[in-house]
């Protein structure tokens, strides 16, 4: 059956330099994309880690602080004494959270059936919106602490009960922001420079070795020929 076999002949490819240019472009592209994806991978991992940490952090902080809330102070009707109580809790909460911290905030809301009123909060606390209040009241009705994720900020709502009551009279709100932990842009130029230098050296070495090997083989072939 050898007569059925055709002679195989490869045609010449295009100019070698063209392929070389393409190779270099491919390598650089691969390095850039690989670098980008690696950094993304790190950021995602870091993001997930801080996110998980934020959930646990809010629960831990709620656990620590909730014991300090005296429900009797929430029921004061005298406005001046009420202001004093609020001021006291504001100071207590501010003292309980790192000064100037943008990671965490804390607040106490007094709640009724379907409404919640801010009683005291740390300086960095943003007032809850309607959805957050609804979530807070709903979670309070379960009687158990609950955590919610709103735009990269975790909130843990912990109900506060008066003795002998099953409905919460107030809610402790602790929030933790989990995406402001690392501003990689500040060092990114330095890192890109390093990557560029490493990549450049590697490419030069790569083509240097390739060229040397080719030259050696040519010389050897000529001498053999």
């Amino acid at each position: 059956m050898e007569q059925n076999k055709l002679n195989y002949k490869r045609l010449q490819i295009g100019p070698v330099w063209l392929r070389t240019v393409i190779e270099i472009v491919l390598i650089i592209t691969a390095i850039v994309v690989c670098s980008y994806l690696t950094i993304r991978s790190y950021e995602n991992t870091f993001y997930e880690a801080t996110k998980d940490s934020a959930i646990e952090s809010t629960q831990q902080l709620s656990h620590c602080v909730i014991g300090a809330v005296d429900t009797n102070l929430l029921d004061i009707e005298d406005p001046s004494r009420m202001e004093y109580a609020k001021s006291y809790y504001t100071d207590l909460l501010n003292d309980s959270f790192t000064e100037g911290s943008i990671l965490n905030s804390c607040a106490i809301y007094t709640v009724s059936q379907s409404d919640a009123v801010l009683f005291a909060a740390t300086d960095g606390h943003s007032a809850l919106n309607q959805k957050q209040i609804a979530d807070m009241i709903a979670s309070g009705q379960t009687g158990q602490p609950a955590s919610f994720d709103y735009d990269e900020v975790y909130y843990t709502y912990t109900p506060i009960f008066r003795d002998g009551e099953t409905a919460p009279c107030a809610m402790l709100v602790v929030s933790s922001q989990y995406m402001n932990s690392f501003d990689y842009n500040s060092v990114v130029m330095e890192r890109l420079t390093t990557i560029a230098i490493v990549s450049g050296v590697m490419i030069i070495v790569y083509y240097g070795i390739s060229g040397a090997v080719s030259a050696y083989k040519k010389r050897k072939a000529v001498s053999v020929g």
Partner: peptide, 29 residues
């Protein structure tokens, strides 16, 4: 290696901040 170093450092800073917060709340506790 470069990113590991950076992120480890940042991770340490985050841990430190969080730990300070926990101990401060622990003080209240």
């Amino acid at each position: 290696v470069m990113l590991s170093k950076d992120y480890t450092k940042q991770h340490s800073l985050t841990n430190e901040t969080e730990l300070c917060q926990v101990v401060l709340a622990g003080e209240v506790y």
